[in-house]
Each structure stands twice: as C-alpha cells, then as structure tokens.
Simulated assay, not measured.
Amino acid sequence: MARRPTIKDIARRAGVSQSAVSFALNGRPGVSDDTRARIRRVAEELGWQANSAARALSGERSGAVGLVLARPAHTLGVESFFLQLVSGIQEVLSAARTALLFQVVEDIDAECAVYRRWWAERRVDGVLVVDPRTRDPRPALLGELALPAVMVGEGNPSRAEAAVSSVRADDAGAMTRILDHLHGLGHRRIVHIAGLPDLAHTARRIEALRTEAARRGLGPDRVRSVVTDYSDAEGAAATRRVLAEPEPPTALVYDNDVMAVAGIAVAAELGIAVPGRLSLVAWDDSALCRVTHPRLTALVRDTAGFGRLAAQELLAVLAGRPPAVRTSEQPRLEPRESTAPPAAHTES
C-alpha cells in the first residue's frame, strides 16, 4: 500500500525544518511568505492532508459535522425525503471541504449517547439535528456539551432552545393548503394518515388539521388524524381500517409518498376508484408520486434546498456567527389526477 506523506517528507523536499512546515500549514507566524508558499506547494504535490484525529486532539477543528437519525431503519430505505435532504447538506459541506459523519440509531436515548461520544472523542465540530420532538432532550444536552447545532425542521423554537440555531418548516401552512384544496373540491370526511406521534412536525400537522377543520365547521367525527411509523405497511393497514368504517372518508392525506402509494394499492385491492370515490394527497412529492397511476396530488417543497439551508447555517455558526432562526421557502400543492370532487352519494 502507498504510504501517506508526512510533515517530515514535506520538510525534506522543501529543504526546511519540520517546525517550519508545521507553522506554514497551520497558518502560524514564524516563516516568510515565500517559504510558506513553497511549503504549501510541496504539500499539494505530495498529496498531503491534515490528520483530522491529530488536529482534534490538538484543539483544532475535526473538519467534520455529524447527523444522527433515530428512526426505524426499515422506514428509511424507500423514503425519498432524507435522500434529498442529505444531498442538499452534502452539496454545501463538500464545497466547504467538510465531511459528514452519519449514523442511524434505534431511539432518542441512543442518539444522545452518540452526541456524548462524538463530543468526548472530538469527532465532529457540530451537528445537524433532525426530527425535533415534542419533548426534546437534545437542545439542552447539546448546550451542556457546548456542541454547535442546528435543529432541522423546528417549527417554534422555545426559549430553552434559543442558544441553538434552527431551520423552520411551515407545516401548519402546508396543511392549510392541503385542506383548502380538499374542502374546495367538496370533501367533508378527511383522514390524515400521520407519521410518528412524538415528532414535533407530526404534532403541528395534526393540530393544524384540527384547527382548519373546526374553522370550517367540521368536527373530529369528520376530520381527524391517525398515527403510523411512516412505513408502507402501517400506511396500508391504516388505510384499510379507515376505509372499512361505516362512514369512510372521501379523502386521505398521507405524511409521506411511500404511504400514499401504499394507499393507492389498498384502494385498488378494495375496488375503490381513485379519484372517483376516494381522493389521495401525499405530503412530499417524489418520482413515486409522478409515476403512480393515477399520479398523486402532492405537496412540493425544495427538500434539497432545506438541507442546503441547514448546512449553511451550521457552517455560519462554526465560523462564529450567533445562533439564528432561518425559514425555508413556502411549499406549494401540486394538484394531479388523484384528487377530484367526491361522488355525490358519498357525502352527506
């Protein structure tokens, strides 16, 4: 195997001492501008890179940021949201020559344990924290560790989280747009097939649905939410349950594209025409929504842009800027063939 070049190799080729190389590569005084330029040119020719572990032990930055996902692993393989989010994050980090350390864990306690280990080992300079919880222990822990962080997807940061940056998503406004569309078509029995109940954005969507339904004179007997784990299996099971009710809904809103596609399959299995007898809406647009027949009405948002915004905010905090709250662009609803006015005999 090829040996990695060392400071000693650079010193030998440049004709200087090892301490001069260290001064030049770490931006410290002690060498002339010409010597510094020559040393850096030699380092580049040799393909030298700083040892991130050694830099961390010396108190310098590790050159990496972390991202931990505490979700059931089987729900991540087919969901496009995180792939798009990470692609946006990586676009910004790659340009800044910053690595992304990624890990999937079972639950929030395991996630907190990862943060403690990364902090103790100086593995990362900061973290991107996804899936804010209704009762979230992570901001307090990260504040205690003094580990820079950005909460991704936070809706209303509390005073306790003011020291942590956040990137906001308007889940309430998005749900209002969806209900405006369905109510405008004439739907009065609507079920929201929601995601994990302890996530803050799930709570915001459920509350927004309840508020907007009440504003239109529709009670919980007509408009409500049921929770799942985001998987196609639970999405399908929830769809079967609500469609088997004496007064089934005429419209279903799914918290992701995978569950919405599973819902179309269940409707076909039961002989329920979409959109003739049942309208379907997916929260996040994806290729799945556009190739399914009928094509799914979906909420379109720039998820990769959301990731870019989060990464930019974390890099700004690492550069010394105070924590801030930034808001992503407003999502829009893209009506397609899966939504239509309900059949006359299905509404009362």
Rank of each mutant, 00 (worst) to 15 (best):
V127C: 06
L93D: 14
A96R: 15
A113Q: 06
A113C: 04
V127P: 03
L93K: 09
R133T: 01
L67H: 02
A149C: 09
L141F: 13
I108T: 15
V86S: 02
D109N: 11
V114R: 01
D125G: 10
L85R: 03
A70Y: 09
P139F: 07
R138K: 14
E121N: 07
R122E: 04
V68C: 10
L85Y: 02
G88S: 03
V129Q: 09
T75V: 15
H74D: 07
E91L: 06
L142D: 10
V86G: 05
G143M: 10
E106R: 15
L147F: 09
V65R: 08
E106I: 13
I108H: 14
P132A: 07
R97Q: 15
L67Q: 02
F81N: 08
R71H: 08
T98W: 11
V114C: 04
E60K: 15
L141Y: 12
L101N: 12
L83W: 02
R123T: 08
P148T: 07
L69P: 04
V150M: 03
V114G: 00
S62M: 13
V114H: 00
G88T: 02
F102I: 08
D131R: 02
E121Y: 03
V92W: 14
L67G: 01
H74T: 10
V104A: 15
L85C: 05
H74G: 04
L67I: 09
A95Y: 13
A140K: 06
E144R: 11
E79H: 01
G77Q: 01
